[in-house]
Amino acid sequence: MAPLLEVADVQRTYALGSILSRHRLRAVDGVSFTMAADRPEIFTVVGESGSGKTTLARMILNMVAPTAGAIRFRGTDLRQIRSGKERLAFMRQVQPIFQNPFEAFNPLKKLDRYLFMTARNIAGLTAVGEIEDATDRALRNVGLSLAEIRGRYPHELSGGQLQRIAIARALISRPALIVADEPVSMVDASLRMSIVNLLRQLRDEMGVSIIYITHDLATAYYISDRIIIMRKGQVVESGEARAVLDNPQHPYSIRLKQAVLSPDAAGSAGRLLAESATAAET
């Protein structure tokens, strides 16, 4: 059986500057990994800003084409997806969740309408009853229901609820893979863990594989099965998440781990901060 997702030596370069002073930026430089079809997992991509995490996500979502290398989803090279029909079939299988739930929804549009549109356009449902059923089912998976959402606008809900709805939207077409780009960085502290737990629940109960992109090592440690650590477009370390984060090998991974502020340092009044900062600079 073909793997769910195969990323093979993928590269993406962007040209910067004017015609006279042109240089190339390798946003993603030779990244490879495989996700199995029969074993759902949470695959985490960690790195600082500018490390190419989001570019990688966009390539997996087929929004940006790789400059070199190939991405295959269930054995099909994404470059072969040409017709609208094939594209739709792909979108049904692979769905995104974005960072900022307040920007993901149109503020002038009711939330249920947004979900119905997804059910109609992406999942390809036509009957009104079917559409409502699919929407309600997806909302129930994230701990909400259609009755709660009907007729409401995005400003009436909190960030955590909106992010749940964004996840429900992604679930309507029953995808096999969800690409979540920093899904909790804009969510309030008291609601953050419920979103993270939800991702874990999707993996365990619905068998959805998740690519979790973040720079927060603590939540990565909490939910991931496997992890890759990226720096300047390249993977510096990869492996089983707990093993990598418990005992990082690459100097950059060590630096990254040291930079994580631990809540257990309370009362040090910045002493540990000084140590980790000097360690980060050397």
């Binding site: 927060d216 440690y221 781990k257």
Partner: peptide, 21 residues
């Protein structure tokens, strides 16, 4: 808030708070 902070080296399940602000 303090109990729900994820920490590296700790995978004990942590609950989110019900309801919204």
């Amino acid at each position: 808030l303090v109990a729900s902070l994820p920490r590296i080296g700790n995978t004990a399940p942590k609950k989110g708070l019900e309801g919204t602000p």
